[in-house]
């Protein structure tokens, strides 16, 4: 895969769906990514405050904090952070709203892991 170097990419994975978070973490880790999985927007913001990430993959709909809100905060904290929005919502309107707020790209659930990885690496080639 392009972009695969000695230094592992640091990915912040944010999703309140624990099952999804767990399996995606495993698969991404297996593909040499340093994944920090968090299950809430609040936790994501806390992690971003403690360490820097190359990419954040954020679920749009979460109970405590909306994905768009998380995007806004993360971009405020680190404007260079690439944020990829994941949405299980039928409407793509919110995801496009996220693009307007500076998200790198969006994907709809369920998606191929290959597609997600392609976007993660593409975000680092900007």
């Amino acid at each position: 895969m392009s972009g695969q170097g000695a230094e592992r990419l640091k990915v912040l994975l944010v999703d309140d769906e624990l099952g999804y978070l767990e399996v995606l973490n495993k698969r991404m880790s297996k593909r040499n990514l340093e994944v920090t999985p968090v299950s809430s927007g609040t936790e994501a913001v806390r992690q971003a405050r403690e360490q820097s990430f190359d990419v954040a993959v954020v679920d749009l709909k979460m109970e405590d904090m909306d994905g768009i809100e998380v995007l806004k905060v993360l971009k405020m904290m680190d404007p260079n952070l690439a944020v990829i929005i994941l949405t299980g919502h039928g409407s793509e309107q919110a995801a496009r709203e996220g693009m307007a707020l500076g998200a790198f790209d969006y994907l709809t659930k369920p998606c191929e892991l290959g597609d997600l990885l392609t976007r993660i690496y593409a975000s680092q080639e900007r």
Binding site: E17, G19, Y20, V23, L24, R27, K61, T87, G88, H89, G90, S91, T108, K109, P110, C111, E112, L113
Partner: peptide, 16 residues
């Protein structure tokens, strides 16, 4: 929209 989200999440888990 809400129901799609509710179904897409388990489907995404199954796919992964």
């Amino acid at each position: 929209a809400g129901i799609a989200h509710e179904i897409n999440n388990p489907v995404a888990i199954m796919v992964e």
